[in-house]
């Protein structure tokens, strides 16, 4: 009798097995073989890591109507959420990808997303520009605070901000792909001053800080399929980053 290898199992079985490990194990397994890579990319695997109380989280968001779709793809978050306190978005994760699709100009994160500790940071929001006024230039602002008592990682590492439009059908889920040029922004005063880099964060009246991620001009005709994406990421420099408290992203006319 020929013996059965794990690679003889149907791909769905491998995905099923991987979904029962942990997100880190899945990423590691993806380097085992092509079959494992394929299996690791299945939605079956990742859906299983979504917090089981996701609906609850969404419904408790500070302004539920702002959130059309809220998707968390957070490594180890599932465990963090379910085993530690149910304190949503008090994250202690190795990876954070927060994707929100929204129909409002002020995108507030539920209960102020607070980053306890991450290496890999990606926060992005996409909206339909049709909700914006035509012939107007908007500035996209990332609104945040730093935990006064403890924040590290950001003084040495700028993060890249992107504001760009894309066609919905071409939407790329690849976090490495950016249509627009990166704009490096320092969320706090960097430890070593680099004169060529502008420091452009500002303190707001409401106590939050904001930094301009980029600008976007809305033409008088906007294709229904166009989406505007605002993205903040740092996935190359993998030092630990913590203490970032995210209020949200705000779009406002500049004129």
């Amino acid at each position: 009798m020929s013996t059965t290898n794990i690679t003889d199992l149907p791909d769905e079985c491998i995905s099923h097995i991987l979904s029962l490990t942990s997100p880190v194990d899945v990423l590691r397994s993806s380097a085992v073989s092509k079959q494992f890579l394929l299996a690791s990319e299945s939605n079956v695997v990742w859906n299983n890591f979504l917090p089981s109380n996701l609906n609850e989280i969404v419904s408790q968001a500070s302004s539920p109507s702002h959130l059309l779709q809220l998707t968390f793809w957070m490594l180890d978050l599932f465990m963090t959420l379910s085993t530690r306190e149910k304190c949503q978005l008090m994250l202690s994760v190795d990876l954070l990808i927060l994707k929100i699709e929204c129909n409002k100009l002020e995108i507030r994160f539920p209960k102020n997303a607070r980053l306890l500790n991450v290496c890999w940071l990606l926060i992005e929001v996409s909206i339909k520009p049709t909700i914006l006024s035509q012939n107007t230039t908007y500035g996209a602002y990332f609104v945040y605070k730093m935990d006064v008592s403890r924040h590290t990682g950001f003084e040495s590492t700028p993060v890249n901000a992107y504001v760009y439009e894309f066609l919905e059908e071409n939407r790329s889920e690849d976090p490495h792909y950016d249509a627009g040029p990166p704009k490096p922004v320092h969320l706090i005063v960097p430890s070593t001053r680099r004169p060529q880099e502008e420091l452009i964060y500002a303190r707001r009246d409401d106590g939050w800080m904001e930094i301009e991620m980029g600008r976007y001009y809305v033409h008088d005709f906007v294709d229904e399929r166009v989406r505007l994406k605002m993205r903040l990421k740092q996935i190359e420099k993998l030092n630990w980053k913590n203490g970032l408290i995210v209020e949200g992203i705000e779009l406002r006319p500049l004129d």
């Binding site: 290898n5 794990i6 690679t7 079985c13 099923h16 097995i17 991987l18 979904s19 029962l20 490990t21 942990s22 194990d25 590691r28 397994s29 380097a31 085992v32 073989s33 494992f36």
Partner: peptide, 24 residues
């Protein structure tokens, strides 16, 4: 699946290949 998953946990890529005899 759970049993196999438990044995994959915390292994390195190389260990997974070895234990399950998977060709790279």
């Amino acid at each position: 699946c759970q049993f196999i998953a438990d044995s994959i946990k915390d292994l390195t890529v190389q260990q997974i290949r070895q234990i399950f005899d998977i060709k790279n």
